[in-house]
Design a protein around this nucleic acid. Sequence first.
DNA 1: GGGTGTCTCCACCCTGGGGTCTACGCGCGA
DNA 2: TCGCGCGTAGACCCCAGGGTGGAGACACCC
Lengths: 222, 222
Amino acid sequence: MASTPDSAGVALRVVLADDQAVVREGLVTLLGLLPGVEVVGAGADGLQALALVGEHRPDVLLVDLRMPRCDGVETTRRVRAEFPATEVVVLTTYTDDDSLLAALRAGARGFLTKDADAEAIARALHAAADGQSTVDAELQQRLVAAATRATPVRTKDVEGLTSREVEVLTLIAAGMSNTEIARALVVSEATVKTHVNHLFSKAGLRDRAQAVAFAYKAGIAD
Amino acid sequence: MASTPDSAGVALRVVLADDQAVVREGLVTLLGLLPGVEVVGAGADGLQALALVGEHRPDVLLVDLRMPRCDGVETTRRVRAEFPATEVVVLTTYTDDDSLLAALRAGARGFLTKDADAEAIARALHAAADGQSTVDAELQQRLVAAATRATPVRTKDVEGLTSREVEVLTLIAAGMSNTEIARALVVSEATVKTHVNHLFSKAGLRDRAQAVAFAYKAGIAD
DNA sequence: GGGTGTCTCCACCCTGGGGTCTACGCGCGA
DNA sequence: TCGCGCGTAGACCCCAGGGTGGAGACACCC
């Protein structure tokens, strides 16, 4: 430990971006009062933020989501691409699921709502610089819920099918005809039909349409 | 701000649980040295942890995932259910996706790997008590990836299809035959075939197998 | 050696599905 | 008023796909 800039006593260098002057100035003051944080720049939109990051190479960029000229998500993406040493923490009033996910996918290390206090913000900034991601608990719950939906027990329905049958099934799920599958597997069409019939009876399927649905549910296609 | 116990100068009361004595003692020492953190109890398994939480009502429980008698996930679930005022932060060496998701679903507010330093742990503890969730950045990325998979841009591929066609498509994706669809929609089979042909040509599909795949990708079936 | 399972292949049958065309009633906007 | 899109419907053709039965080759295990 004690290897990070902040823990060594050197202040965390932060650039912030928010289009509302009041909020921006408020943040500058607020963060400036905190030990361990040094605000080295503040911009009013995404492009300004990018320029400031390029100029100061801060440890963290604290950015609002809604901004004119290049929004928070886009800014995040660009900063992560062009200045990977700078972590990004998003601060926003709007907490709809889309922007949350979009920002995190763009590479944001934190996602705070504007009711966070100075301490919480400071913590998130330090965490980001230190390889941790801090997200408002409620939003994190939504994220977990979304991720949970995406984890459909996967496979093991396929239990009982031979490897060849599974192979055929995936090709069926890809929308291929028997002739195409035969060509792809370099076997005769008769063979493919045999496999198809076998897997149908094993899995209780009636036709390839049901097979495709089965494959998707089993998670062997997507 | 300054409304949380920690910010008021009062130390964050923490109970920790880890079955490995070395790690446990190490953590007690480590956390004890930190200002703002007071370790009020340490247990070797889930049941001990539960008892200690019941006795001390700490702000945060720092718990290992792998433990004899009631593992980390189960402990988390019970603590959240019985002592909702106590937040839970999970600390683990194993970072497979399943346990991550399981722990967060059980109500954990943080998820740290054991290579986290004292500072990072302290930050996560304070964040948890303050309504923030702190997750190791790499793990957070996996979580986001999982959540993203669950959000398949939805619709807009379906653009161009009439409502009736979409309706037919979903039934096809459910594995129904034309006759079944006709019965379900109370129309003649000829009508169904017409809709089917229309949607095939509109969406560039060759047969119902491809249609099923299309439906899944478009997110109108699952 | 015999049994069992998988992969391979063939022949035959037959139905459902896909392609095309035509047609009618309805609602809606030009 | 006319045209257009949509939902409805029927007729026709044709073939890919699904069902059945049989069979040879190879591998594995008892």
